Simulated scan of single mutants.
Amino acid sequence: MRSAVRGAGAAALALGLGVAVAACSSGAGVRSGAAEDFGDSRPAEVRAVADPGGLAGVPARVDGAVVTVGDADAPHTVRVYEDARCPYCKKFEEGGARALVGPVADGDVKVEYTIASFLDKNLGGSGSVNAANALRASVDAGKFPEFHAAVFANQPDDESVDAYTDAFLLKVADTVDGLRSDAFDRAVNDGSYETWVDDAMRAFRDDGVRGTPTVLIDGKKAGGGEDAMYGQTSFAAVLKDAGIG
């Protein structure tokens, strides 16, 4: 068995908000365990998302190690650092991130996602890498916002569960109209974008990020009270203070 650093649920500095909030840390505490300890504990059913984050149909593209959603010429940029296995990222996506829907749809904001995968090392398994690889493949299929929402909607309740196997991710993809194809399935099953996944993790470290979710608005730390990023109304106020909305 290998040693792994357990950090999910630890207090970390949320750089995007400039305040300490609950987050998944990229390094705190030690746990011993193997990935196979959790391999059969994934959710029994796959949940379809009726409203995939409100961004269905918004174009996404790959810019180096980043996936960008929205108008390339948008005057404001919100950068989001996430790990698919992080429960606080799910909380952000189902809360504060919804405040971005209107500004993105209006062309006022583009969102740059850096998709990290440190929780595989922290918790054991390969789910974060698998999910990041599949999310990259969904860009080619023109379905990143929809699949991104579906991946977080199907995150297990226990972050130690290594749910995101290739087979499970393909079941999640079944809930997104038009996503499954020979090319997409091959990319998921073959890990076609693992080099890109490594590049994204390197960018996460190089940017000095220590936990997820981390959100930067126009490259700067934003104000806001504790946990402001986890509510749609509270994060809308953070965006407004930064000149958005």
Rank of each mutant, 00 (worst) to 15 (best):
D206E: 13
G208S: 11
H148C: 10
S181N: 08
V176G: 02
G178N: 06
A150R: 11
S160E: 12
Y164W: 14
F152I: 12
E194I: 15
R210A: 08
D207F: 00
D158G: 03
L216Q: 15
A173Y: 00
V176H: 03
G211C: 09
S160Q: 15
A228M: 09
Q155T: 05
F152A: 14
E159P: 12
G211H: 15
S192Q: 14
T212A: 04
R210Q: 10
E226L: 06
F184M: 00
D206Q: 14
A163T: 07
F168R: 11
A150G: 08
T195N: 10
A203Q: 13
Y193D: 10
R210K: 09
D166P: 07
H148L: 07
V215G: 08
S181C: 14
D182Q: 11
L170D: 02
D190A: 09
D227G: 03
V197Y: 03
A200W: 08
A200Y: 10
D185G: 02
R186I: 02
D198S: 15
A200C: 09
V161P: 05
I217E: 05
V209P: 05
N189D: 12
T212Q: 07
K220M: 03
N154V: 03
T214P: 00
V176Q: 03
G191C: 04
D182F: 03
D166T: 11
G224W: 05
R210W: 15
V151D: 02
G208P: 13
F147M: 03
R205G: 12
A153H: 10
T165L: 00
K221C: 11
H148P: 08
Y164V: 15
F184S: 02
M201Q: 13
T214Q: 01
G211Y: 14
T165R: 09
R180N: 06
S192G: 02
A187C: 07
L169W: 00
G219I: 06
K220H: 05
G224E: 01
D227R: 10
F152S: 07
L169C: 06
R202A: 15
A167C: 01
G219P: 06
E159R: 12
D207E: 05
A173R: 02
D207N: 01
L179I: 02
I217P: 08
A173K: 02
A163E: 06
E194Q: 15
A187S: 07
G191Y: 10
R202Y: 14
R186D: 11
A183L: 08
D190I: 01
V161W: 07
A183F: 14
D198C: 07
D158K: 03
L170C: 00
A222G: 04
D158Q: 06
P156K: 09
V215D: 01
A150M: 11
G224D: 04
R210F: 15
D207T: 05
A150I: 08
D157T: 12
M201Y: 15
F168L: 13
M201D: 10
G223R: 06
V176D: 03
F168E: 14
G191A: 01
D166S: 06
Y193R: 11
K221A: 14
A222L: 05
D199E: 10
E226C: 08
G219W: 02
N154W: 06
D166W: 00
A183I: 11
R205I: 04
G191M: 05
G208W: 00
D199G: 08
K220P: 00
R210S: 10
S160K: 13
A200K: 08
R210M: 13
D157K: 12
F168K: 09
V172S: 04
R186E: 11
T214W: 08
T175H: 12
V215S: 04
G225M: 04
T212L: 07
